Amino acid sequence: MQLIITPGGEARCIYGEEIDLAQLGELTIRRGSHVEPDPAGSWFCDLSPVSGPQLGPYPSRSLALAAEVAWLADNWLTPDC
């Protein structure tokens, strides 16, 4: 897990359960995307909650989730994005 801490003390990460984030203080958790299948069974990742694109189609949910994490890490995680 990458944990970014800004000079102002704000911590930012792509949520995971590797560490207990509550130990850092009060949490604000928000959705970064929606990963859903279409009627044909292809998977899409909608990153509109963080002003991102729609990614996909992917043949499996796990590939869509991996694309979600990669996009968030490259485009949202760092404070200057």
Rank of each mutant, 00 (worst) to 15 (best):
E18P: 12
D46V: 02
V35D: 03
L27H: 13
G8D: 11
E10K: 08
S51E: 12
C45M: 09
A64S: 03
C81G: 15
P37E: 02
S48F: 09
I5G: 04
Y58K: 01
P39T: 10
I14T: 11
E68F: 10
P49G: 02
C45H: 04
G9K: 01
W43C: 00
W76Y: 04
L65T: 02
G52E: 03
I19M: 10
G56P: 08
A64N: 00
E36C: 07
E68A: 11
S51M: 14
Q2K: 09
S48P: 08
P79L: 10
M1H: 14
A40P: 15
L72D: 01
P39R: 11
D20P: 13
I19S: 08
T6M: 11
Y15N: 13
I14M: 06
I5Y: 00
E17W: 13
P49N: 00
D38N: 14
L72G: 03
L63D: 12
G25L: 02
S33A: 11
W76P: 05
W43D: 02
E68I: 08
W71N: 03
A64Q: 00
P79F: 10
S51V: 11
Q2Y: 09
E68M: 12
S60K: 02
S42Q: 05
E10G: 08
A22M: 12
C13H: 13
A67H: 00
V50K: 05
T6L: 06
R12F: 11
D46F: 06
P49C: 09
P57C: 07
D80P: 00
P37A: 05
V35N: 05
L21Q: 14
S48E: 14
L63F: 08
C13Y: 11
L55W: 05
P79T: 09
A67G: 01
I14E: 03
Y15A: 06
F44N: 00
P79N: 14
C81D: 13
L65C: 03
E68T: 14
L63M: 08
A11S: 14
E10L: 15
P57Q: 06
T78R: 15
L47C: 15
V35Q: 01
M1D: 14
V35E: 01
W71E: 07
S60Y: 02
A67Q: 07
E26K: 12
A73Y: 14
E26C: 04
D38P: 09
D20C: 13
Q2I: 09
D20G: 05
G25D: 06
V69R: 07
S48Y: 07
L72C: 02
G41Y: 00
P79M: 06
L77D: 04
T78H: 15
I4H: 10
T78F: 15
S60D: 13
W71R: 02
E17T: 15
A22L: 14
H34I: 06
W76M: 00
P7R: 05
P59K: 04
P59T: 06
I29L: 06
P49E: 07
Y15M: 12
R12W: 06
N75S: 07
C45P: 00
P79Q: 13
N75L: 15
A73S: 10
C81S: 10
A66E: 12
